[in-house]
């Protein structure tokens, strides 16, 4: 009688519904636009500035829009615009790879802890607490200092300090999902635990993981910039933080050296945060209605 299925059209609208809810948050759309520009810049860097950004392109400390420098040159005469284009590649790459590693480690740790509970949970959570008690930036400095500064080590350092919050998030989701009846039905089928964890439960907590992951990218970019600023970045790779660090001693004589890369960091991090916020609204619509 009331046993009627809702129309299947509701499911087909899924994709556009996501976009509609995302677009309802104007700030998120602006963030997405900024992020798009940064990605475009990174993609076009080898065509716009085919030369190595470390080459000396002209006289040092040239102000913007002079001598063919769009954004001026730094203390050694390197083109700042070229450095920013190549730095965008570094920032995005490190942000994404470090986040991917952190999400993978966090999901596995949190998933195993949440699914098994008991002493497994206790052990893994004490372990994450060990990581969480050390201030993350100082820990990252320590790791890079020990491992020697290279792109790979910077990524490892950032991933190592970023996974604990994700592990906690995933663990919480798993604890609420593992007692659902569908998981029990899978147990009764004799399904191995790893399949239940990865194929049955994990897809059900993707939304919060995606949101947390997107915000993690912003944090990763900040940490990378800060490391490079302190001279702990890869010396062979151009990065925004390195540019700011290189210009800080002449901040009052040549404002442009620090300003443009600094703005780039700020805008990119802001944009990613806005997009993350928008995704949160789009993926957890009920949360938003409640607060509205």
């Amino acid at each position: 009688m009331t046993d009627v299925a809702p129309s299947p059209a509701a499911a087909r609208r899924g994709g556009s519904a996501f976009w509609r809810r995302f677009a309802r948050n104007r700030a998120a759309v602006v963030g997405l636009a900024i992020l798009g520009v940064v990605v475009l810049l990174a993609a076009l860097a080898p065509f716009l500035y085919p030369e190595d950004p470390f080459t000396l392109a002209g006289p040092p400390l040239t102000p913007p829009l002079q001598e063919g420098f769009l954004l001026g040159s730094d203390t050694l005469g390197r083109d700042i615009a070229s450095g920013m284009a190549h730095g965008a590649r570094t920032s995005l790459m490190i942000g994404l790879v470090a986040t991917a590693v952190a999400v993978a480690v966090g999901a596995v740790m949190g998933g195993v802890a949440g699914y098994y509970g008991g002493w497994v949970d206790d052990t893994l959570m004490r372990l994450t607490e060990v990581f969480q008690t050390i201030p993350s930036f100082i820990f990252a400095i320590l790791l890079v200092a020990i491992l020697s500064p290279s792109i790979l080590n910077v990524i490892i350092a950032i991933a190592v300090v970023s996974w604990p919050p994700l592990a906690r998030l995933v663990r919480g989701e798993f604890i609420s999902l593992r007692n659902r009846e569908f998981v029990q039905a899978n147990v009764l089928m004799g399904m191995p635990d790893w399949r239940i964890i990865l194929i049955q439960i994990l897809p059900n907590c993707l939304s919060p993981i995606i949101v947390a992951g997107s915000l993690l990218v912003a944090t990763a970019i900040l940490i990378e910039s800060a490391l490079a600023f302190l001279g702990l970045g890869d010396p062979n790779v151009m990065s925004w933080g390195f540019q700011v660090g290189a210009g800080r001693s002449v901040l009052r004589r040549a404002w442009w050296i620090c300003t443009f890369p600094g703005l780039a960091i700020m805008l990119t991090v802001l944009a990613i945060n806005l997009v993350g916020e928008g995704m949160n609204d789009a993926l957890n619509p009920r949360l938003r209605e409640r607060s509205a």
Binding site: E181, A185, N186
Partner: peptide, 30 residues
């Protein structure tokens, strides 16, 4: 396999991310 269960809550007993075909096939496949 020999003892199976039917659950109480129709909304929690099926994995929302799996198609009906997969839900029905994964037991025998396992």
């Amino acid at each position: 396999r020999r003892v199976q269960m039917v659950f109480q809550d129709p909304f929690a007993s099926l994995n929302p991310r799996r198609r009906v075909r997969e839900i029905l096939a994964e037991g025998p496949i396992t």
